[in-house]
Design a protein around this nucleic acid. Structure first.
Lengths: 239, 239
DNA sequence: TAGTGGTCTAGACCACGGA
DNA sequence: CCGTGGTCTAGACCACTAA
């Protein structure tokens, strides 16, 4: 085997090619590790390294005691989110319009699992483009006594960043929902449209490694100036 | 080392623990492969296997010639999509309301990159729950001469499935956008609301391995009966 | 020059599946 | 029983980084 790329990488590419061109059908078993090692004149370890790439990428799966099988391709439900592109309009900028500490109401108790009445940091940010207002972002973080309010940190970073900096904890998970809602009168005013105008409502709850809520953000975008976009793949990167 | 789990797995878990409890800060270099091998009394290969898990999961990254470093945790932009949960209402069912072959208009030429006027298969599906209509799904697939119309295949499978079966090609990628739009009079009638009612509009273009469009689906959901939901993680599965 | 991660070898033993 | 993948060892050479 020539050494343009690593040998294990070539093994992976060759197998992938056989799979993608139909030489190996879904459900079919491929040659065993030992057979491939002998076929290519390389060690079993190297064969395993190549096959490992294809398993990780979703082309193959292993059945211990039997062998490797070609996986049925299926668009998995993993979305690579593109957050920058969807702005319709240029030069997005963010303006912190309100910051205060409020007592947790029912909604905050539910979202952040704090005690009713507990102090909560609330921020409102207006997202603008050169064409005018795009969205309103309302962010809520449980207030920790003695934690200074670093506005510049909270303002400029994106929400997960801001929360991680403020809470000094690792944001490990987030739940995300995207919905369509009509804007109420106040929101519509801020976004320079009439009440009832449809908005794209992106809500995100951030959690630490122990599933404790660290922050809650709800952003309402003018539907004519923002869309939520992403890409899904049947096979994941590499090889 | 006891053999409750594989040794390499224990190595990964121990390192992960050190990272998550702050014993190892982001940007910090960990012990080298050889040092860990000696420390645990195992081979370098086994250490590498364990470290590999942490690299894949996003806890560590390697700098050849230098060492492994603790990665700064960041909620990545990968979303595990939950498609089943978001139905508000029970017992979703799908009704194929229209199937025909149409000549490609401008929109179809853009989305499916077919020639203007080319035959295109069009389907309209109404999504219902026990509470009433939820959404309208419009699906478009380039028409291939001699490809029989297998309604039952096209109706019951989800769109990527249906396209894969019909085109007999692997659906490898899809572009997805989620937007908020007001329903027009006809759509509003089908969904039993008044015109202008906000809808969540989920659009998906499916591509084969060569980025050739295989199908285009645009679904409009009643905003009070459907939300788009997902989960994001800073670290990906395993260990 | 010494140490690092990246690649590769030629073995070994194990649990498991199937004939 | 033999073949499979899963784990593990004890080496080797390489390209690269840093002192």
């Amino acid at each position: 085997m020539a050494r343009i790329r690593a040998v294990y990488y070539q093994v992976a590419e060759e197998l992938k090619e056989k799979i993608m061109t139909g030489g190996l059908a879904p459900g079919e078993m491929i040659l065993s590790e030992s057979q491939l090692a002998e076929l290519y004149g390389i060690s079993r370890t190297t064969v395993r390294q190549g096959i490992g790439l294809l398993v990780d990428a979703g082309y193959l799966y292993s059945v211990p005691g039997k062998g490797y099988f070609v996986a049925a391709p299926a668009l998995n439900k993993i979305i690579e989110n593109v957050t920058e592109a969807p702005f319709i309009g240029q030069n997005p900028s963010v303006l912190m319009s309100k910051v205060d500490v409020m007592a947790a109401d029912e909604l905050l108790v539910e979202k952040l699992r704090v005690r009713p009445g507990e102090s909560t940091l609330r921020m409102q940010l207006i997202i603008n483009s050169s064409d005018g207002p795009v969205g309103i972002d309302n962010r809520h973080i449980p207030y920790r006594r003695g934690q200074p309010l670093l506005e510049k940190e909270l303002q400029y970073a994106d929400f997960p960043d801001a929360v991680a900096r403020h809470s000094k904890l690792v944001v490990a998970k987030s739940d995300l929902t995207v919905a369509a809602i009509p804007l109420n009168k106040h929101e519509a005013e801020l976004l320079a449209v009439e009440a009832g105008f449809p908005a794209l409502c992106v809500e995100q709850v951030l959690y630490d490694v122990g599933d404790k809520p660290l922050g809650w953000s709800i952003t309402k975008y003018r539907s004519d100036r923002y869309v939520f976009a992403g890409i899904t793949h049947a096979y994941s990167g590499k090889v």
